[in-house]
Computed example of a mutant assay.
Amino acid sequence: MNEEERFDFEQKHEEDLQRLRGFRLLDDDFMSKVFEDKDCVEFLLQIILKRDDLKVTSVSSQYVIKNLQGRSVRLDILAVDRQNQVYNIEIQRDDKGAGVKRARYNSSLIDANVTEPGEQYQNLNETYVVFITENDVLGENLPIYHVDRIIRETGKMFNDQSHIIYVNSQIRDETALGKLMHDFTCTNAKDMYYEVLADRVHYFKEDEKGVAIMCKAMEDMRNEAAREAEKMKAIRMARLMIEDGKLSYEDIAMYTELTLEEVEKIALEKKSA
């Protein structure tokens, strides 16, 4: 590493440390690391669902669900409990990211990806999509919104075991949920109510090993963002080349470093547009 590269590295590292100091649990990159811990996820769900008996058996952060027929999604947190119920927990600071159709889409992809071919529909897992939002997205000034299908004519629950929950972090009262939302807005672990969360926040902000993990995660995110930017640039170039019509798909793939299948898909999308 030459002197210029070392200076650039040190500058980015200092910027990462500065960002880390300002992180809250409402920042999804930070939240995803904190809630890799099963105890934290379990505690969170117990408060939101008011279920002390809930026991989480597995947790995955930044879990990607591929959709070969459409848009794939990256879930902040995907957890499963001992009753095989599935939970997707999303942090959304941007109201658009917490739209009702986003919740529906997440729910549908989870259903499609937790079932095996040939499995009976009645064996579908009970699922919960939980959005913790910085703003009151649904606008009714409630701390929490439970969304379930009902039969209009009778008012009875449809009971398809597919649940959507919005948690409004703007309400930070003295209830268990209000205190939880208070903790989600703290930048300092010392200001938090709940020890299980505060300890984890302290680890990633104050402990040498935890800070190193977070800095590495931020570096990885930068690199991934750069790769995605390069990919989007290649896709834009491929579209222009296809529109120009002078090159074969094989040549376009070679020049843009996309796969032939990706180029063919871009061409097909362009024709159907």
Rank of each mutant, 00 (worst) to 15 (best):
E4Y: 07
E10R: 06
Q11P: 00
E15M: 10
D16M: 06
Q18G: 01
Q18F: 06
L20N: 02
L25P: 05
L26F: 04
D27F: 00
D29N: 10
F30I: 00
F30H: 00
V34I: 15
V34M: 08
V34G: 05
D37Y: 05
V41L: 04
F43I: 02
L45F: 01
Q46G: 09
K50I: 07
R51W: 01
R51S: 13
R51G: 06
V56F: 04
V59P: 13
Q62D: 09
V64N: 10
I65V: 12
K66Q: 10
G70R: 03
I77R: 01
L78F: 14
R82M: 07
R82N: 15
N84V: 01
N84H: 14
Q85I: 00
N88Q: 05
I89Y: 01
I89V: 15
Q92P: 06
K96R: 12
G97V: 00
G99L: 03
G99P: 06
V100L: 15
R104P: 06
R104H: 11
N106S: 09
S107N: 15
S108C: 09
L109M: 12
D111A: 03
N113K: 12
T115M: 15
E116W: 11
E116S: 14
N123A: 11
T127Q: 10
F131G: 11
I132C: 01
T133K: 01
N135S: 10
V137W: 03
G139A: 03
P143Q: 11
Y145T: 09
V147E: 12
D148L: 06
R152G: 05
T154G: 09
T154W: 08
F158T: 05
H163C: 05
H163K: 13
Y166A: 06
S169Y: 09
S169R: 09
S169C: 09
R172V: 06
D173L: 04
E174Y: 06
T185L: 08
C186V: 05
M192K: 07
E195V: 08
L197C: 08
A198P: 09
R200N: 08
V201P: 07
F204T: 00
F204M: 03
E206H: 05
E208A: 12
G210V: 02
V211T: 08
I213K: 13
E219P: 00
M221D: 14
N223F: 04
E224S: 05
A225R: 13
A229I: 01
K231M: 13
M232G: 00
K233W: 03
K233Q: 13
R236S: 13
M237C: 12
A238H: 06
A238R: 04
A238G: 10
R239Y: 12
I242S: 07
D244I: 10
K246F: 13
S248Y: 06
S248G: 15
E250R: 14
D251S: 15
D251L: 13
Y255I: 10
E262P: 00
K265G: 00
I266A: 09
A267T: 02
L268I: 02
L268G: 04
E269S: 11
K270P: 00
K270S: 15
K270A: 12
A273Y: 12
